[in-house]
């Protein structure tokens, strides 16, 4: 009986893909932050092609998931927002890459 259950489970699509990261815009943000130590909002806007509003929405979601850390400071009396990937975000991104690779390896065309 256990064998049949396991067999059925293996045929179902994977559900352990992190949906917060799986969204294309958030994936772009995380990928960009993964390769740098920190970056400000303008840099991320330029690199990802997102608008300020769009980026702000995704930033909030990523911050709520504790994947990124947002630091606000003043540079030359101007507000400056710096973003960096948290340790949790870094490991989540690594797991996401691993899971996606495995998912595509398991995917057999017919």
């Amino acid at each position: 009986m256990t064998d049949v259950k396991d067999d059925n489970k293996s045929r179902l699509p994977r559900t352990d893909i992190d949906k917060i990261i799986h969204e294309p815009a958030r994936l772009k943000i995380l990928a960009q932050l993964y390769v740098v130590e920190n970056a400000d909002v303008i840099f991320l806007m330029r690199r990802t092609g997102l608008t300020q509003g769009n980026l702000s929405t995704h930033m909030s979601k990523l911050e709520a998931a504790e994947y990124i850390e947002i630091r606000k400071e003043f540079v030359n009396k101007k507000p400056h927002t710096l973003l960096s990937l948290s340790d949790k975000g870094r490991s989540a991104f690594r797991s996401y890459i691993k899971n996606m690779k495995e998912a595509f390896e398991e995917l057999i065309d017919w």
């Binding site: 390769v35 740098v36 130590e37 920190n38 970056a39 400000d40 909002v41 303008i42 840099f43 991320l44 806007m45 330029r46 400056h80 710096l82």
Partner: peptide, 12 residues
């Protein structure tokens, strides 16, 4: 540069 493309600190 910074006002146009922002600020980035590269990975260690």
């Amino acid at each position: 540069i910074i006002p146009r493309i922002g600020l980035v600190k590269f990975h260690r």
